[in-house]
Amino acid sequence: MQGIFVKSPILKMALGILGALGCIILLFLVLATENVRMADQTDNWAAREIENGALLYANNCASCHGPDGKGLLGVAPALNSHYFFADAGRLADINYIGSLESYVRLTVAAGRPSKTNSQWAQIMPTWGSQFGGPLRGDQVIEVTKYVMNFQDAALAQTAEEDPFQPFLDVRKPVGEQSIAVLMGAAPPPVEEAPAAEGGVRAPAELFTAMACVGCHNMDLPQDASNRGPVGPNLGNLAEVAGTIVPGMSAEEYVYQSITEPGAHVVEGYITGIMPPDFATKMSEEEIQGLVAWLLDPTQ
């Protein structure tokens, strides 16, 4: 053997044995630190889920639940809230016996496509792709992890800091839900119903505040290729409203659809989904304004 570096077979054997020993020592070093590494990695990937969830939250959720998770009055409930995370808080009030994480994940994935007893301007849309939403399963989990990461900050809130808004879907009286009550304070005064406060509200604002926007899409027309899944699209309302019920003008038809939703239900949609009480929530002047705005093709 005439290698240029190592010629002696004895030296070769010695080096080979050293190499084998080296392999074993290195593998034992890995073994010795493997538990620490796996723990670090577990934390790392949990942290990355939260980072990814933060971006998804900012893009999809912040517009209603607030960029800081503290909710928007009348639009969506606070998540960064003591009441939301407290043991005797939201979950206890609705008798949900699963974990808060499963509750959040279910709500994000399936949404809350129901308007029963809800005071929020919009329904919670369905996000999970398995239920027809835009987010993959792993993205739903990431958003959930992000929301759950509010926990420490939320539980540190005092009653005054809690951005809690009373829920109407709970059998408990509104005054007893607040975290302040849970902490032993007197129930806060029940808020006045947000009915007409003197002035007339703008139609665009009403369209959101009355939650019309949750079911009726203003950007898409209602035609053979586009059908609103819950309520008809309103993009071409100005053109078609006068033709739906013979003998009814567009204005009459829209006005009746708002005040008596059950009078004429478009074929294929379910009767009773649209709330029947808009006449009591808006003044006559506001309804007229809303009708005119809906039929304005230039809005």
Binding site: G3, P9, M13, G16, G19, A20, G22, C23, L26
Partner: peptide, 28 residues
């Protein structure tokens, strides 16, 4: 002639063990 057993075998084995050790070291 250089016979495979033992000369080339020793050479190849020792070369591969050293190479493997370096590879594990680089990986780590």
């Amino acid at each position: 002639r250089v016979y495979y057993l033992p000369d080339v075998a020793i050479d190849e084995l020792s070369f591969l063990t050293i190479f493997t050790m370096v590879m594990i070291f680089l990986t780590l």
